[in-house]
Computed example of a mutant assay.
Amino acid sequence: MDGNNGCSPAGRQRELTVDQLRAAVSTLESRNGSGFIDIEAEKDLAQVRHRALLLLEHRSRSRRELDRRLGDLGFPPGVVTDVLDDLERVGLIDDESFAVEWVRQRHRHRGKSREILDRELKEKGVAPDIRGRALGQIAESDERDMALTLARKKARTTVAEVPEARADRDRALRRIFGVLARRGFPQGMSMGLARQALDERITELR
């Protein structure tokens, strides 16, 4: 527990997110506080806004991702665009912040490589320059350390006894290498680290 009112960092972040959503709703709903209001148009906006905020309450999303989700739900493209513009103005859509957090979380907690993370952000419609800045958080040494950690973990679960036959050793090596390859780590680096992890595991067992 954190010393600040007994809230954990995750709890405070959750409260901040809820407060942001509430503030955004207040801002968006009051934008036509003076002058003529098109009731029917506002109803359409309110429906899209409500669904967009529900999606953002679950987790942050890129603008393109939200646009696709809302479009798939059958909302008119023009209304979706207006709502997303509003959300961007109040800071609830920010592709830069989204990309930075996406890379940080998925590299640290899921062991994703720069290549895989770049592909994921591209699929979510994040612009190349923003992707590049977000991926800049991961140094080459950090990526190598992450790959080696994954290789060692796989070696421990794959190799229970010293492989005496060459075929058994090669099979174990392929399994360790496969874990790294599926996460998009460079092939040359992955094979070298797979061999290192396997050799270390064999040494432990002898």
Score class of each variant (00 low, 15 high):
193 L>V: 09
173 L>C: 07
190 S>P: 06
150 L>F: 00
138 I>D: 01
146 M>T: 14
162 V>P: 03
165 A>Y: 05
141 S>G: 07
173 L>F: 05
146 M>H: 05
156 R>E: 12
151 A>L: 10
158 T>A: 11
185 F>P: 02
191 M>F: 04
162 V>R: 14
137 Q>R: 13
166 R>G: 01
188 G>E: 13
185 F>M: 03
187 Q>Y: 12
165 A>N: 08
179 V>T: 05
157 T>A: 15
142 D>M: 14
149 T>A: 15
150 L>D: 01
155 A>L: 00
163 P>W: 00
188 G>K: 03
150 L>G: 08
151 A>W: 06
182 R>M: 03
187 Q>R: 02
167 A>H: 14
157 T>K: 15
173 L>W: 07
184 G>K: 04
151 A>H: 01
186 P>K: 05
189 M>Q: 15
135 L>S: 14
135 L>P: 11
184 G>W: 02
181 A>D: 15
160 A>M: 12
159 V>E: 04
178 G>S: 10
135 L>Q: 09
179 V>Q: 07
154 K>N: 05
135 L>I: 02
158 T>C: 02
175 R>L: 11
158 T>K: 03
145 D>P: 04
156 R>C: 10
194 A>H: 05
185 F>A: 00
187 Q>N: 09
144 R>T: 14
163 P>M: 02
185 F>C: 04
182 R>L: 09
181 A>R: 15
153 K>W: 02
135 L>A: 07
187 Q>V: 08
167 A>W: 13
171 R>G: 02
161 E>L: 00
150 L>W: 02
144 R>G: 10
146 M>V: 00
176 I>W: 00
183 R>I: 07
137 Q>S: 07
165 A>R: 10
153 K>D: 13
172 A>C: 04
148 L>C: 04
153 K>C: 09
161 E>K: 14
191 M>S: 08
164 E>N: 11
144 R>E: 12
168 D>H: 09
163 P>T: 00
161 E>T: 15
189 M>H: 11
160 A>D: 12
187 Q>K: 13
144 R>P: 13
140 E>N: 13
135 L>D: 10
155 A>P: 02
144 R>W: 08
154 K>E: 13
144 R>N: 06
154 K>A: 09
141 S>F: 03
156 R>M: 04
156 R>T: 08
188 G>F: 12
165 A>C: 01
152 R>Q: 11
165 A>G: 09
140 E>F: 00
182 R>Q: 15
183 R>D: 02
192 G>W: 01
166 R>H: 09
